[in-house]
Design a protein around this nucleic acid. Structure first.
Lengths: 222, 222
DNA sequence: TAGATTGTTAATCGATTAACAATC
DNA sequence: TAGATTGTTAATCGATTAACAATC
């Protein structure tokens, strides 16, 4: 009974939030939740939540609501978490290391297989039990292992080259932290970029608006 | 001639992208650009770009287009970049250090004043010329310096507490990297969260969709 | 001037919200 | 049963796109 013919990006971007919220509710011991209660905690309307879920199927019970555990499970399934996606990290600087150490890949169904770098100081060591290989051996490694996601934490100057190498080797997903907008063929891969600057600039705009609202006298022309 | 009575978040989220794209064009030596050319490079329609800019004023010339340098300047102004916002970093682990080292704050009009941590190994040192103080001295520091943005790179267990302390001390903007959804009073502060997990899960969904599209035979019911 | 491209209003499209019968 | 809450269609709202006069 799937009707996810074309799910909008707005809905897709909310799925991870549902998953996160339901995980928190589950940890807190909540067994059931209604769309209105979930909406209240997430700042969404009950209608929107039901409409979003309606894209994928029927997960609730009339008069009762949703079972937190099974809804979380279903959304995880929709997201593809049970597929056991594998991950490699490209570039073990502070950022790459921070992600390897702080991001609980296995906790979310991902397997972090390996990392690659060019620094002699790091190649051959392990980070969180994950081996760091020389970047020269990337293609050999990718030929021998199915890798679903490449995490790009290399210097911005290497971003396009390393992205190209991953895609060329058949890695379908690139998680891009380089602040560089990678050029690629959408038919061959998906690139998800985390743009720190965009985020800080949006924050900057919102702070500035607050400041302006605080002293509304000089609203006139310059 | 401002008509930014209520600018939608969709527009606000595009402003940083315009700023980034124009910066790149400027570096590449491009002097002028039309809305259609800019749209082509950014994957937007010319209409949308003109409509977005229309929220804030008139920045182009009929028959000519936009001067890259001055449009970039104008958007920077709209974002509030010229206000010289000041920044402190809370938590100098790998992530905090990665942001301090890789994110060019001053290049984008921000001033990174100081960092705070609790580890004796780090307190008293400098990172990129920025002093690291003990977190116990945070309130004293904030009373003496105007700080606009606090970067939260503390462990998730400290996220709410440190966010509260920043807001209590009057810091209006929090850039939250802790993967914790901070509870706060919107009248007192703005919190911008960078949710790594949301980003990876959205990527995961898109990869899964690709995989399903690759073998469309078994589309039937379970 | 003729061609290009903006600023700006109107039309369209899509996403959110409302409503309500179905049903637990 | 009565009350609650879903699944789902319809109505509304807002964002994107189209159109075009103004003008460089």
């Amino acid at each position: 009974m799937k009707r996810n013919s074309k799910v909008s990006t707005a809905v897709i971007r909310r799925l991870p939030r549902y998953y996160r919220q339901l995980s928190e509710l589950l940890e807190a011991g909540t067994v059931r939740i209604s769309s209105s209660a979930l909406g209240r905690t997430m700042g969404l309307t009950a209608s929107q939540i039901r409409q979003d879920l309606f894209c994928f199927g029927e997960f609730g019970q009339q008069g009762y609501g949703y079972k937190v555990e099974s809804l979380r499970e279903e959304i995880g399934e929709i997201l593809g978490l049970s597929r056991g996606h594998t991950v490699v990290v490209l570039g073990v600087g502070n950022l790459g290391r921070a992600i390897m150490e702080n991001f609980r890949f296995s906790h979310n169904g991902f397997t972090l297989l390996a990392a690659f770098d060019v620094s002699e100081r790091i190649v051959g060591t392990e980070v969180m039990g994950v081996p760091v290989y020389h970047a020269d051996t990337l293609e050999t490694y990718l030929a021998a292992h199915r890798v679903d996601v490449g995490v790009l934490t290399v210097p911005i100057s290497e971003a396009q080259t390393m992205g190209d190498r991953l895609i060329e080797a058949g890695v379908p997903g690139i998680w891009n932290f380089t602040n560089y907008e990678i050029t690629y063929d959408p038919a061959r891969a998906v690139v998800e970029s985390v743009h720190f600057l965009d985020s800080l600039l949006a924050l900057c705009y919102m702070i500035s608006q607050r400041e302006d609202a605080a002293r509304p006298e000089n609203e006139a022309e310059t």
